[in-house]
Amino acid sequence: MRSGVYAIGAAAAALLLAVAPPAVAQAPVPPPCRTVGDAPFLRIAPESAARLAEIGVGRAEVFALMHETSIPETMGCWAMPVGNFDSQLVSVGMSQWNYGTGSLQPVLKAWRDSFRSRGRFKRAVKALAPTYGKLLFSRDCLAVPVRDRCRAGILAAHGADGKLNPVILAELTAIFESDAMLQVQTDAYVALLEAVRLDLLRVFPGQPITMRKVRWAVDTKVQQGFFPIDEDLARLRAKLAAMPPGERWTRLRAIFDWYGALARTIDQDGIQRDAAWNVEQWGCMIDFGMIDPEQYEMLHLTFLRSRTAIGNSGRWQALTFERRAKIILGIGSVSGVRGGNCPAPRAD
């Protein structure tokens, strides 16, 4: 017979399955693209490499992390531009830098400046983006926030379906798949990793910095930009330390229940192929004693940050949690891509 606690988890999963599509979730197939990965011409500054080595991140790890980051963002592509579906005007690149948050403008400026000559830059724009290059690199579009003229021009480049038209799509892809932009993206990602290094030392003072923590921190930084403040970290850790041992797994199940309930609400997106399977698998992990102390604390930290994800008035909170939970647990589904598997419960 199944244990009682597993039956509770299974019941929650069944409720999710009742509203989920009946077909087995299929992982999305990426379009033909230049895929994220190492290349001989890509450089990492020696001083940056030395700092990253302090947290166990070498060149191979940098590009492995880049590829991992790109999977939920661009299905592993260097470019994959998308339009204003999330109110960010344009998002593009392996970290989906965008105009809305102001993260795209520095990347475009860095690419422009990498030519070290206005003439070379203009020739590159003419070759790669003859129609929309002038708009994309205009002062209006490089301002933070973008100005009204830029916003109007970008929105006009969307089709009736709300997606970028084929011309601007192709031109942004050409720019972001160019060798020079691959270097810019690498530089931006290395800078992000260096910032993550400082965040890790603050969030986990005195603790070993494991690769699990690095991967978790990178995903948090890419998607949400920052981590809980010291006051919130101290409050959470004090509560965890004072928690009676008998409440340990009930409290964690409550977080998984929060995720499952949130996923069933009308205005959560990006999780329809994942939530039911995740609820079942993560409940199974509790039943089989597969969650260690580091994972336990990190799941609570993830809950702390996920419940404050405010994009589109909280539309992505469940997705935010499942992305980090999959990294922490090594088992999970994100964007229809499943990884790992909890042992099936055995009959007595």
Rank of each mutant, 00 (worst) to 15 (best):
A188G: 09
D199K: 02
Q185D: 06
D148H: 07
D232T: 01
Q223M: 12
V222R: 02
C150H: 14
D232R: 14
E171V: 13
T250S: 14
R264L: 01
K213H: 02
L164D: 00
E171I: 14
Y259M: 10
D267I: 02
L198C: 06
A241D: 11
L192H: 03
R147W: 06
V184P: 11
A157P: 05
A195P: 03
E231K: 11
F176D: 07
R264Y: 09
D267V: 08
V144S: 09
A217W: 01
G260S: 14
A156I: 02
I154W: 09
V203T: 07
N165H: 11
L155W: 04
F227Q: 12
L172I: 14
L192F: 01
H158I: 00
R212Q: 09
A217S: 04
T265K: 06
F227D: 08
V144L: 13
Y189I: 02
A174L: 11
I154K: 08
R237D: 12
E171Y: 12
L201E: 14
D267F: 00
I209V: 15
A157F: 04
K213P: 03
L182H: 13
K163D: 04
V146I: 15
M211Q: 11
F176M: 05
L192K: 06
R139V: 10
P205N: 03
A191C: 04
P208W: 00
R248I: 06
A254R: 10
L135V: 15
E194P: 01
L193D: 12
T210Q: 00
R235D: 14
A143S: 15
R235S: 12
F176G: 04
G133W: 02
E247D: 04
V214T: 01
P244D: 03
G246E: 11
P228H: 02
V218M: 00
L136W: 14
Q224Y: 08
G162T: 04
H158M: 02
R149K: 15
D257P: 07
I175V: 15
P245E: 12
C141I: 01
C150G: 13
E247C: 07
G162W: 12
F226P: 01
R251M: 10
C150Q: 15
I266G: 12
P205V: 08
R264V: 09
I255F: 13
P166T: 13
T265N: 08
V222Q: 10
R212I: 01
Q207Y: 01
T186F: 07
V203Q: 12
W249G: 02
F256T: 11
A143V: 12
K134C: 06
L155D: 10
R147T: 13
Q268F: 04
K221D: 09
Q183N: 07
K163H: 05
Y189T: 03
P205L: 03
E231G: 05
P245T: 03
S138Q: 14
I209G: 09
